[in-house]
Write a protein that binds this DNA or RNA. Structure first.
Lengths: 123, 123
DNA sequence: TTTACATATGAACAATTATTCATATATTTA
DNA sequence: TAAATATATGAATAATTGTTCATATGTAAA
């Protein structure tokens, strides 16, 4: 993930910014850097069509890797890579049944985030 | 945005997938491709620290480009580029007052999406 | 109508990332 | 134990994207 290099001084607006103590105040009200990075990383998971599709599949149905691949007409490898990312972010969980590993949504939080997104694009 | 090339046939699992009519059913229950792309594009906007920071700033306070740059210690150009993306996605709006252009959040939808994200990472 | 200032934008570069391909691991069955 | 099947994973490649730099646009003041 790209973490931006901090400038010693922002030299925008020829150093003549308008609202000095406003800036000061808002700077102090900002959440910790770390949280903002984590939040961006969280949304990054939803920022890919393949992962969105996987989540929509699992929304309907627990499924094995093979069937997800079949459903999305993609390779098993591609799906497996993306499932790993979803798992790392605790968006999906899995259980093993013999050779087959079934994936499902980790919690209902995800459903409501997806719905809110859908609401916005269909405003 | 990267749109994946569809395979004629998914050849995962050596063509021997487990749950044929399950796959069939879920395929038909999927939302339109287009919507899924749009949804991923929507979340892509939140998937960058700079844009997240801008949104958190505007959550507190309407602000001009220059002051946002000052607040985040980044160049005016970088902020301006990101504001354009936020505007295109209807996450922010702006008004002109003389030479200065003030940006603010487009609606309260955004607040709740950010909060839900924060909730998840602090689960 | 020049000059200064606030913002926007195009091109180039650096960094990130999704998929593919080859192969490894794990489990079941013969 | 060997063979087959389901899934995972590392490396390479192609594509996307955020920032910088230089410059353009638009507005106000001199």
């Amino acid at each position: 993930m790209k973490r931006d290099i901090q400038k010693e001084h922002a030299q925008s607006c020829d150093m003549l910014h308008h609202h000095d103590e406003l800036v000061e105040r808002v700077v102090h009200e900002m959440p910790p850097e770390e949280d903002l990075y984590d939040l961006a990383d969280f949304f990054k998971v939803f920022a890919d069509t393949t992962r969105i599709k996987i989540l929509y599949v699992l929304l309907k149905q627990e499924m094995c890797v093979c069937d997800i691949a079949q459903t999305l007409e993609m390779t098993q490898s591609a799906i497996s890579h993306q499932l790993r990312i979803l798992k790392q972010m605790d968006l999906v969980k899995n259980r093993r049944d013999g050779k087959i590993i079934y994936y499902s949504l980790a919690d209902n939080h995800i459903v409501s985030i997806l719905s809110q997104g859908m609401d916005h694009i269909n405003e």
